[in-house]
C-alpha cells in the first residue's frame, strides 16, 4: 500500500512539474515573445500582456481542461463505456442551443445562456432515464445522444434563419476558445469546477467498485443509486461550467482519461487527480499552439485538440498499448 501511494505521489509530482513548465512556456510564447527570464521581472508592457491576457487564459485552460478530463473519467467509469465523453450526454448540444437562442434574442450573457442550456439538456436526460428511483445507465446514454441530435437539428434551423452577424456569433462560440477576459467570470467558473472536482475525488473508490458492474457494487455494499446520481450531477456541473465559458472544445474529455489509464492504471483514486492535471496540461499546450502557429492569427483550439489528440490516440491504439475495454 505504501509503495503504491509512493508511486502515485511520484506520478502526481511529475505531472505537476510538466504543468508548471507548460504554463511558463505559454506565458512566454505569443505574438510578443517574452523571454522566460523576464517573466518574473516583467517590464510594464510585458506585465500587462502576462497578467491581463496570458495568465487568465492559462488559468481558464487549466480549469476547463481539468473539468472536461475529470468529467470524462467519471462518465466513462460509471457508464462502463470507453467512448463516452462529457459531450455525449447532451451537455454541449444543450449549451450550444442555449447560446444560439441567446444570440438570436440579442441576450448578451452568452456564458449564462450556455450554462442554462447545458443544465436544461442534462436535466431532461436525467428525468427521462430515471424510473422508480432507478437511474438506468443505458437509457441515460441513449437519451443523451438523442437530445444532442435534436439540439443540433434545432441549431441548424436557427442558423438557417439567422442574420449574418448572428451566424458569426454562433459559429464563433461553437468553435470553442479560451479567449475570455472577464476576470469575475473566470473566478466563478473556476470555483464551481474546483468544488465539483474536489467532491468527485471523494467518490473515487466508489467509482472503482461501480466499474465492476451495478449488481456487484450492491453486493459490496455500495449505495449505487446515490453514487450514480451524485457522480452524474458532479460531472454535468463541471462540464457544463467549462462549456459555458469556453464553447465546445472536443476530445479532451475522451482522450485524457485513456492516456492517463495508460500511465497510472485504472484505479480512480489516482486516475482522477492525474487526469485533472493532464487535462489542464493538454489544453494549455493545445491553446498555446493554436495561438502561435500562424501568429498573429489564431486557430480554434478545438482544431488542435482534435488533430493532436486524435493522431496520438490512433498511434497508441495501433501500438496496442492502449486498451479500449473488452
Amino acid at each position: 500500500m505504501e509503495r503504491k501511494v509512493g508511486k502515485w505521489m511520484g506520478r502526481l509530482i511529475l505531472l505537476a512539474l510538466i504543468l508548471m513548465a507548460v504554463s511558463l512556456l505559454a506565458l512566454s510564447l505569443g505574438p510578443a515573445r517574452i523571454p522566460l527570464s523576464n517573466i518574473f521581472h516583467p517590464q510594464e508592457i510585458e506585465s500587462i500582456i502576462l497578467f491581463k491576457i496570458r495568465l487568465p487564459r492559462i488559468i481558464l485552460g487549466l480549469v476547463v481542461g481539468a473539468a472536461l478530463a475529470v468529467a470524462g473519467v467519471i462518465f466513462q467509469g460509471m457508464f462502463r463505456n470507453p467512448l463516452v465523453e462529457p459531450y455525449t450526454l447532451g451537455i454541449s448540444g444543450g449549451a450550444a442551443l442555449g447560446v444560439s437562442l441567446a444570440v438570436i434574442a440579442g441576450f448578451r450573457m452568452l456564458p449564462l445562456a450556455g450554462f442554462l442550456g447545458a443544465l436544461g439538456a442534462i436535466s431532461l436526460v436525467y428525468f427521462i432515464a430515471r424510473r422508480q428511483g432507478i437511474l438506468r445507465i443505458s437509457m441515460l446514454l441513449l437519451t443523451g445522444v438523442m437530445i444532442s441530435f435534436i439540439a443540433s437539428a434545432i441549431i441548424l434551423l436557427i442558423m438557417s434563419l439567422a442574420h449574418e452577424h448572428q451566424l458569426h456569433g454562433i459559429l464563433f462560440w461553437i468553435m470553442g476558445s479560451l479567449e475570455e477576459t472577464n476576470p469575475s467570470l473566470i473566478k466563478l467558473v473556476s470555483l464551481i469546477i474546483l468544488i465539483a472536482i474536489a467532491i468527485s475525488f471523494l467518490f473515487s473508490r466508489a467509482l472503482n467498485v461501480l466499474s465492476l458492474g451495478e449488481e456487484e457494487a450492491l453486493h459490496l455494499g455500495v449505495n449505487i443509486e446515490r453514487t450514480k446520481r451524485t457522480l452524474f450531477i458532479l460531472g454535468s456541473l463541471m462540464a457544463g461550467a467549462a462549456v459555458s465559458v469556453s464553447g465546445i472544445i472536443g476530445f479532451v474529455g475522451l482522450l485524457v482519461p485513456h492516456f492517463m489509464r495508460l500511465l497510472v492504471g485504472p484505479d480512480h483514486r489516482i486516475l482522477l487527480p492525474t487526469s485533472c492535471l493532464a487535462g489542464g496540461i493538454f489544453l494549455i499546450a493545445s491553446d498555446t499552439i493554436a495561438r502561435t502557429v500562424i501568429s498573429p492569427l489564431e486557430i480554434p483550439v478545438g482544431v488542435i485538440t482534435g488533430i493532436l489528440g486524435g493522431s496520438l490516440f490512433i498511434y497508441f491504439l495501433t501500438k496496442r498499448t492502449l486498451k479500449l475495454g473488452k
Binding site: 466513462q76 467509469g77 462502463r80 463505456n81 470507453p82 466499474s211 465492476l212 458492474g213 449488481e215 456487484e216 450492491l218 453486493h219 459490496l220 455494499g221 455500495v222 449505495n223 489509464r261 492504471g265 485504472p266 486498451k323 475495454g325 473488452k326
Partner: peptide
Amino acid sequence: YMELAKRMAVVPQRMPEPFF
C-alpha cells in the same frame, strides 16, 4: 447494503468484467 455486505458475500457465476 453496507451492513449486509459484511455478513453475506455473493460469488457470481462469471468474473464481473471490470471495465478496465
